[in-house]
């Protein structure tokens, strides 16, 4: 072999700066990328460690899901009935969805299908700004403004109730749902709209017969993410719901939510006590429900993406 080629082939074993930089970046992004798995696993292990101890000892499913007596601090006979908390969270989230689904879908259709040019861009920015308002601000609005408004308008003694928390939570969830729903509408190819318009369809017919069916999965996912958001929200429901244990008869009754209970009580419990561990059991319940909702939304979104790829020529 001639010496020149020999010298050059020695480079094959020489690792320069670029090689090490590449390796370093690879390791760094690998850690960043996989840390999500680590965190999810870690959080679940943490909650489970504290909560499961309760689940396998004091826990009584009949009491937990069937009783409204949440009396963790009773010295003689502590009971852990979470029914009122579950119903409280469900009723607030349910009302929030009644408020936010029509609102946000209408907003998404307007921004995506009707608004043009600068109006559209401005609205999109405003909606995203709305989504960034801290929840404590929303809670404050519920606590002060909505409270007196409900008392005045409906002539009820107290304005911190399901109605208040539901409306505030609905308004809070709407921007995120609007943004995701608008993305889903935008993913519908313009060719569909043009083709339907060329058939003589009115704009509403185009939206109803073509655009919404084509974007259906994304819209469902938007709604599910809104539900998940509402379910897990803490500050608004703590401040606006009245925070009293109660099975509501009407929207004017005060209720207490799962999340708010954890937030309000955890600081006052002894670490490792039954009460402490019971709160973690509520945490497990919340975790499982929000996990299931997000998983469903994600599966549906994936469904669209795959179908979209297949549909392209």
């Amino acid at each position: 072999m001639n010496p020149q080629a020999l010298a050059r082939s020695r480079d094959f074993d020489h690792r320069g700066r670029a090689w090490y930089a590449d390796r370093a970046v690879t390791v760094f992004v690998f850690i960043g990328g996989t840390s999500a798995i680590l965190f999810i696993g870690g959080i679940f292990a943490f909650i489970a460690r504290e909560g499961l101890g309760f689940v396998f000892t004091e826990f009584d499913a009949g009491e937990f899901f069937g009783s409204i007596a949440w009396r963790p601090t009773s010295a003689l006979d502590a009971t852990y009935g979470a029914l009122a908390l579950i119903v409280g969270t469900a009723s607030i989230t349910g009302l929030a969805m009644v408020v936010s689904i029509p609102f946000s879908l209408a907003a998404a259709v307007f921004i995506g299908e009707f608004a043009r040019g600068r109006v559209r861009e401005t609205l999109k920015v405003l909606v995203e700004l709305l989504a960034a308002i801290p929840s404590v601000v929303w809670g404050f609005i519920g606590f002060s403004i909505m409270n007196s408004l409900i008392i005045d308008v409906f002539d009820v003694p107290i304005g911190l109730n399901v109605l208040n928390a539901g409306i505030i939570l609905g308004l809070m969830a709407a921007p995120i749902m609007t943004t995701i729903a608008e993305d889903a509408l935008k993913a519908v190819p313009d060719g569909y709209r043009e083709a339907a318009e060329a058939l003589g369809a009115t704009r509403w017919q185009v939206i109803r017969k073509v655009v919404i069916p084509a974007a259906k999965n994304g819209l469902v996912a938007a709604v599910l993410l809104g539900v998940g958001r509402g379910f897990g929200e803490t500050m608004v429901v703590l401040m606006a719901s009245g925070h009293s244990i109660n099975l509501p008869d009407s929207v004017f009754d005060s209720v207490r939510a799962l999340t708010a209970t954890i937030a309000a009580e955890l600081g006052e419990t002894a670490v490792g006590s039954d009460h402490f561990r019971a709160l973690f059991t509520l945490g497990i319940l919340l975790f499982l429900v929000t996990f299931a909702i997000n998983l469903a939304a994600d599966t549906i979104m994936r469904g669209i993406r795959r179908k979209g790829e297949r549909g392209r020529p």
Partner: peptide, 20 residues
């Protein structure tokens, strides 16, 4: 205008099969 368009058929360069 919708009534006008409904009397005019259009065939585009690339087939646009509606998602139906």
């Amino acid at each position: 205008v919708y009534a006008l368009r409904s009397r005019i058929g259009v065939v585009f360069p690339l087939p646009v099969g509606l998602p139906l």
